[in-house]
């Protein structure tokens, strides 16, 4: 036997790979993508494709020409960043803004920290927040979902449920009237996705299907999303009980805005979330509290992105102080 292979144990491997996990997340996002096309039409496809292409091109260029490394764009991580960034944008956003967002997400959010595995903040969220602050008008002009034939240009625009909530609070109207008066779509529409919002955040049902898929394939564990949902439900529930006119009920919070998308796909990002169950629980609680605080008391109608980014900054500390349960 020519040249036996010698290596330390173990001598077998589970067959798991980065690609399997990344493409698994992509598959879990497919139901949400289908819904986005059903509600927002061609615009959804264009935005998603542009974002993905831009992210891949930037990662390739930075790796090959700046860092002089072998490009790894096929491992799936830049692809996921592209899809998630797109899912955080309205379907009528100008393409050049998407490209800038991709450059910030990949260049600053990921590569400047050292590439895969080294970033502190979720790259898609870094891109999204950058765009929100730099282009507030374009980032908050939401098309009204008009089905698959939603026109690409000059689509009718309207406010998202959370924006309407913020407006109602400012004008002093009791929030409980929002849904009963029909200003905000009913719960069925919120659950299925027939409401204003970014591409990926509207269809709660589709996202939950994706969640089940991720759990089944053992790509993520249940701890972070469930902790976020539970914390949001409890915290907003307490507020609602204290003052139902000012604070809307918890189910509304769970179904609107980036709650589902953020809790299931963004907060569970491997690189930026804690490594132990205790750490993940604290992380989830933190995100839940911050999201409700920003939504109810902050200037922005949506708080999920900021909440996740803030807790991303705490992840190294959580890893340091919340260790897994030792055997002995």
């Amino acid at each position: 036997m020519k040249n036996r292979i010698i290596s330390p144990s173990p001598h077998v491997h589970s067959g798991d790979s980065i690609e399997k996990n990344m493409y698994g997340v992509l598959i879990a996002l497919v139901p949400a993508f289908i819904c986005s096309v059903l509600f927002f039409g061609l615009g959804a496809v264009v935005v998603t494709l542009t974002s993905v292409a831009a992210c891949l091109v930037f990662e390739y260029a930075i790796q090959k020409f700046l860092l002089r490394q072998c490009p790894t764009i096929f491992d799936g991580s830049a692809l996921i960043t592209g899809v998630l960034l797109a899912f955080n944008l309205p379907s009528n956003i100008p393409l050049w803004i998407i490209v800038i967002g991709a450059l910030v997400a990949i260049g600053i959010g990921k590569m400047s920290f050292g590439g895969l595995g080294c970033n502190i903040f979720n790259p898609a969220l870094v891109g999204r927040v950058f765009l929100l602050i730099s282009f507030p008008v374009q980032m908050t002009t939401w098309p009204v979902p008009a089905g698959i034939h939603t026109p690409l240009v000059d689509a009718a625009t309207g406010a998202t449920p959370l924006a309407l909530l913020k407006a109602a609070v400012h004008t002093g109207k009791p929030v409980s009237e929002l849904i009963s008066s029909g200003t905000v779509s009913g719960y069925r529409d919120l659950f299925l996705g027939n409401t204003g919002g970014s591409l990926g955040e509207v269809a709660a049902l589709a996202l939950l299907i994706g969640f089940v898929y991720l759990l089944f394939c053992k790509i993520i564990t249940w701890h972070i999303p469930v902790t976020i949902f539970a914390t949001v439900f409890l915290f907003s529930g307490i507020l609602h009980l204290a003052n139902p006119d000012l604070f809307i009920n918890p189910v509304f919070h769970l179904l609107t805005g980036g709650m589902m998308l953020g809790a299931i796909f963004m907060a569970t990002d491997y690189v930026t979330s804690p490594m132990s169950v205790k750490g993940m629980t604290v992380y989830g609680i933190g995100i839940g509290i911050l999201t409700v605080l920003i939504r109810q008391f902050g200037a922005y109608p949506e708080g999920m992105s900021f909440a996740i980014l803030i807790m991303n900054a705490f992840t190294p500390l959580l890893n340091r102080y919340f260790k897994p349960a030792r055997f002995a």
Binding site: S7, I18, G117, C118, Y270, V271, T272, S273, M275
Partner: peptide, 15 residues
């Protein structure tokens, strides 16, 4: 079966 695949960065998946 035996040859190892090339290693990459830790993706902090906590598996």
């Amino acid at each position: 079966e035996a040859l190892r695949k090339p290693a990459s960065n830790c993706i902090r998946c906590a598996k």
